[in-house]
Design a protein around this nucleic acid. Structure first.
Length: 485
RNA sequence: GGCCCCAUCGUCUAUCGGUUAGGACGGCACCCUUUCAAGGUGCAGAGACGGGUUCGAUUCCCGUUGGGGCUACCA
């Protein structure tokens, strides 16, 4: 039994998008589940489009998701010599021939074929050149590419997710494996590298299905053992088309900035194209995912990416993860918003953690926490117009009740939820009103908002002094309103 | 156009020939309640179509339709 070796092989021509992340995740999950290795290979053979920035972005994306790889990153561009040697080997064995047709000629023939509504396929004219002719043109320094001579027959494999897939070889054209500048084409570089890396399972998006027969042919020509292949369904946008930039946020980095937790992203992605089968709880940690993952129950159907469900899932994780994991995600945003300094947070750690506990349960995005945290940090609060309109509609009554509330709270022996509730409910009864008539205007006075954690928790977080001064300020504000009207 | 892949609620999915076709997101209603979130309960909502095979098909086979992918000296 050899240990499974899987890989994720992105090309560094942009950011890490969610489709790539999902492919990486499934490879990672299966590697971790089976005790195999998860390798990373950067396919940078397209020098024109590859950039260091996107290589970096891919690393960052994977790290953020927590998908760590084993062994050193392989850069495809560094393997040029082997790619050439493998191509040479196939040329010597007669699987490959030199083609002197230029791209311009080929383009012309392609457009002509299209005009006739014919399917274009390379006609193998250069394979019919005799030895003398070839020798003459090579000696003359004519540029040529190397083409693979596709044999007759059929190429088929048992796919991990699709079962049997087969292609008649007559539908596969003699494809180029080495450009005229002696650099490898995708399919050749992939096979050469996958062999060298000892990959046992190639799991990738099913947009690669039509590459697979070509790659199998290359394995065979090179005399290498075939890996297993698995083709994962695509992820589509809500319009049913392959997910792309025009669908909005498609980079995992976008979701990070939107306030999505990596735990939620991974959980959500895992459930696109896979399910544990039977009844199960959809909210899972990474560890639980590894535990539950397997290569049966992989789906064939493309899945539509639903941002709403992602948000819901994020809310679930926001409430469940250990506070120690949550804090480092929130704190930088608190600091960036200028709500507090790192020292202040450190000095009131217990209070800060309590605040996070209060806010996390009513948040879906990390930013929701930051937004709701404002009234607990700022000296001055702004009154939300809608909250005022609704809860302070009867300004005179609100004023009276707030004043009474302030007095009650001032004399409270202990500034804790129990006594607060007891005394304020008593006050409500005295005044002949329901609790809401006191709590709601009070909420606006303390937070400026119509929405907040439980009012007693709010007061505890604010402390007696600040609570009382805020009520006093609200009274003044209400008096102003009354005088003005 | 050619080749390949796919097909259960709007979306993600369960079902491995026999179910009132189940769950989740979203929607709606109600409960809880000082607001919101969370939670609880309930409602609406699906096997694309046509043929077979079978005592019986969402499930197996074929066709149709629809959708998607690929079709470069890109990856």
């Amino acid at each position: 039994m050899t240990t499974p070796r899987l890989r994720f092989a992105p090309s560094p021509t942009g950011y890490l998008h969610v489709g790539g992340a999902r492919t990486a995740l499934f490879n990672w999950l299966l590697a971790r589940k089976t005790g195999g290795k998860f390798l990373l290979r950067v396919e940078d053979t397209d020098k024109a489009r590859s950039t260091d920035e996107s290589t970096q972005a891919i690393f960052e994306g994977l790290n953020w998701l927590g998908l760590n790889w084993d062994e050193d990153v392989v850069f495809q561009g560094a393997n040029l010599e082997r790619h050439r040697a493998d191509a040479q080997k196939m040329l010597e064995r007669g699987h490959v021939y030199r083609c002197f047709c230029t791209s311009e000629e080929l383009d012309k023939r392609r457009t002509e074929a299209a005009a006739r509504k014919d399917a274009f396929k390379y006609d193998r004219r250069c394979d019919r050149l005799d030895h003398a002719e070839i020798a003459r043109r090579v000696a003359a320094g004519e540029p040529f590419v190397l083409r693979f001579r596709v044999p007759d027959g059929e190429t088929a494999w048992t796919d991990l997710v699709h079962e049997r897939i087969s292609f008649p070889n007559k539908d596969i054209e003699d494809f180029v494996i080495l450009r005229s500048d002696a650099t490898p084409i995708y399919n050749h570089a992939v096979v050469s590298d996958d062999i060298a890396m000892g990959i046992t399972l190639v799991m990738r998006g099913d947009d690669h299905i039509s590459n697979t027969p070509k790659q199998i042919l290359l394995y065979e020509a090179l005399g290498a053992t075939l890996p297993q292949f698995g083709h994962l369904p695509m992820i589509h946008g809500t319009d049913g088309k392959k997910l792309s930039k025009r669908h909005g946020a498609t980079a995992v980095g976008d979701y990070q900035h939107l306030g999505i937790l990596p735990q939620a992203m991974v959980n959500f992605l895992a459930l696109l194209g896979w399910s544990p089968g039977g009844e199960f709880n959809e909210v899972m940690t990474l560890e639980e995912l590894v535990q539950a993952f397997s290569d049966d129950h992989l789906l064939k159907k493309a899945a539509v990416f639903d941002p709403q469900k992602l948000e819901w899932m994020n809310g679930q994780h926001l409430s469940r993860i250990p506070l120690a994991d949550l804090e480092p995600r929130v704190t930088p945003l608190i600091l960036a918003a200028g709500l507090a300094t790192a020292e202040e947070l450190e000095s009131r750690k217990e209070w800060y953690h309590q605040l996070l506990e209060l806010l996390r349960v009513r948040s879906r995005l990390v930013d929701d926490i930051v937004r709701q945290a404002e009234p607990y940090f700022r000296d001055e609060i702004a009154y939300d117009a809608e909250a005022v309109a609704k809860q302070w509609k009867d300004a005179a009554s609100a004023l009276t009740l707030l004043a009474a509330t302030r007095e009650t709270l001032t004399t409270l022996a202990e500034f804790t939820p129990g006594p607060m509730e007891e005394s304020l409910r008593q006050l409500a009864e005295q005044k002949g009103v329901g609790g809401g008539k006191i709590f709601q205007p009070l909420r606006v006075a303390l937070t400026g908002l119509a929405v907040s954690p439980g009012i007693f928790d709010v007061m505890v977080m604010l402390g007696r002094e600040r609570t009382l001064s805020r009520i006093a300020r609200a009274e003044a504000h209400l008096q102003g309103m009354l005088a003005g009207s």
